[in-house]
C-alpha cells in the first residue's frame, strides 16, 4: 500500500524525503521492476525521480554519460550510443519493458539474471551516486547500502563489445548472459549473469585473455578458468553443470569475435 508519493524537483529535496522516510521509502524510476507483479514490495512511500532531470545522454571525455532516468529504448534510439552498446540494451526483448525500464533502475534492481549487466560490467561502466561516490557497476551490484544512482558512465572507445545470452525462450530471463569487451588499451572485460546471485566479472579470464592474443591451444584453459570462476546453482531453467559448461563455450566465442583466436598453434 502506497501511503505517500512524492515528485521532488531537486536532488536536495529528494534526498531529504528519503532521509525523512528511511527504509519505508523507495526511489521510483521507470517502475518496471518496482511495480512488477502487482506492487509486491514493502515500501509505503515512493519518491519519483521523474522531475530530477537525469535524462541526458552525451559523449564526454571519451565516455558515454547516461542519466539514470534514461530508458533502455531511448539509449537504443540515441545517435550517441554505439551499435554494440545498443545491442546490450536490446538484450531485453520486450520493447514495452525497454520503454519503461531506466538504466539507473535496472542497475539498482541488481537482478542476478539481468541480460544488460554483463555488457556494462565488461565495458567497464561505472555509476556516479548522489553522495558523489563512484563505483564500478560490478562493485555497485555487490554493495549492500547503496546511494541513489545519478549517472552511468560507459567508456565509449572500446575496440569491441560482444554479447550473448542463452535462454529457453525469447522473453524468459536467461539461463546465462555473457559479455566480452576489448578495451582501447587492449585490456579485457568479461562478465556473466545467471551464474551467481549477482552478475559477476571474471578477472582471471580477463587476465588470461589479456596476456597475448588468444591461441587455439589456450581455449580449453580459458574455458576451465571461466568454469572455475563461477559457482552457479541449479534452478528450473538449467542445472549448475550446464551453466558451468556452457559459460566457457560462450566466453571463448565472444573473445574470438572481439579478436579472432589465432589458429596457428
Amino acid at each position: 500500500m502506497i501511503n505517500n508519493y512524492y515528485r521532488p524537483e531537486t536532488l536536495a529535496d529528494a534526498l531529504a524525503l528519503k532521509k525523512q522516510h528511511g527504509d519505508e521509502a523507495a526511489w521510483l524510476a521507470g517502475g518496471s521492476r518496482l511495480n512488477r507483479g502487482s506492487f509486491e514490495h514493502a515500501a509505503t512511500t515512493l519518491i519519483s525521480l521523474e522531475k530530477l532531470g537525469l535524462k541526458g545522454i552525451e559523449v564526454k571525455d571519451g565516455s558515454l554519460e547516461i542519466g539514470a532516468m534514461v530508458t533502455l529504448q531511448q539509449l537504443i534510439e540515441s545517435t550517441e550510443t554505439s551499435e554494440e552498446l545498443k545491442a546490450v540494451f536490446a538484450q531485453i526483448f520486450n520493447r514495452n519493458i525497454r520503454n519503461q525500464s531506466t538504466l539507473g533502475g535496472e542497475i539498482a534492481a541488481a537482478n542476478g539474471r539481468c541480460e544488460v549487466m554483463p555488457g556494462l560490467i565488461a565495458a567497464g561502466a561505472h555509476v556516479v551516486l548522489a553522495d558523489d561516490s563512484v563505483f564500478s557497476v560490478e562493485e555497485y551490484l555487490q554493495a549492500e547500502d547503496k546511494a541513489l544512482i545519478l549517472k552511468v558512465v560507459v567508456p565509449a572507445n572500446l575496440k569491441a563489445l560482444k554479447i550473448r545470452k542463452i535462454t529457453n525462450s525469447a522473453a524468459a530471463e536467461p539461463i546465462l548472459a555473457a559479455a566480452v569487451a576489448r578495451k582501447a588499451d587492449d585490456t579485457w572485460g568479461i562478465a556473466l549473469s545467471g551464474v551467481a546471485e549477482k552478475p559477476v566479472r571474471l578477472r582471471d579470464a580477463e587476465a588470461l585473455v589479456g596476456e597475448s592474443q588468444l591461441a587455439e591451444g589456450k581455449i580449453e584453459q580459458l574455458q576451465k578458468v571461466v568454469s572455475d570462476s563461477i559457482k552457479p546453482v541449479s534452478d528450473f531453467r538449467a542445472s549448475a553443470e550446464y551453466r558451468s559448461s556452457v559459460s566457457g563455450v560462450v566466453v571463448v566465442r565472444l573473445v574470438d569475435e572481439c579478436a579472432p583466436i589465432s589458429k596457428s598453434q
Binding site: Y5, N35, F39, Q73, N96, I97
Partner: peptide
C-alpha cells in the same frame, strides 16, 4: 508516446 504496460504503472506516474 511510447508503449508501456499499464499494470506496471502507478497512477502517480
Amino acid at each position: 508516446g511510447v508503449a508501456v504496460n499499464a499494470t506496471m504503472l502507478i497512477v502517480g506516474q
